[in-house]
């Protein structure tokens, strides 16, 4: 089960953080939001997600969360890199795109 978790956790974390940032964006742009306007909470959330992915990637790359089987180690590593890159790629709009229009 540990092997399965190692394979699936990084991208599952991507999905969770991606959905959470999208949800936060929905809240910030909704009529319910009465707090200050601005994209900073979104940028902070995206950076946090990226940091978590980085930590997970480091755990797997440095074999602190070791996978004994070489093929599966490489596959876990590919998936952790994919999740890290994917987090940056998909949350990039928080910095560039107009946020409530």
């Amino acid at each position: 089960m540990s092997t399965i978790l190692r394979l699936s956790l990084p991208l599952t974390l991507w999905l969770a953080s991606f959905s959470a940032v999208y949800g936060l964006h929905g809240l910030l742009c909704s009529s319910r939001w009465t707090g200050p306007d601005g994209r900073w909470p979104l940028i902070a959330a995206a950076l946090l997600a990226l940091a978590l992915q980085g930590a997970l990637l480091a755990l797997i790359a440095t074999r602190r969360w070791p996978e004994p089987e070489p093929t599966l180690h490489r596959t876990s590593l590919i998936l952790a890199v994919a999740a890290f890159v994917g987090t940056g790629w998909t949350l990039m709009p928080v910095a560039f795109v107009s946020h409530c229009l």
Partner: peptide, 14 residues
């Protein structure tokens, strides 16, 4: 809003 769409556009290309 466009940013919401942008997230999913980025994911869809990825």
């Amino acid at each position: 809003p466009h940013m919401g769409l942008a997230f999913f556009s980025a994911a869809s290309t990825l």
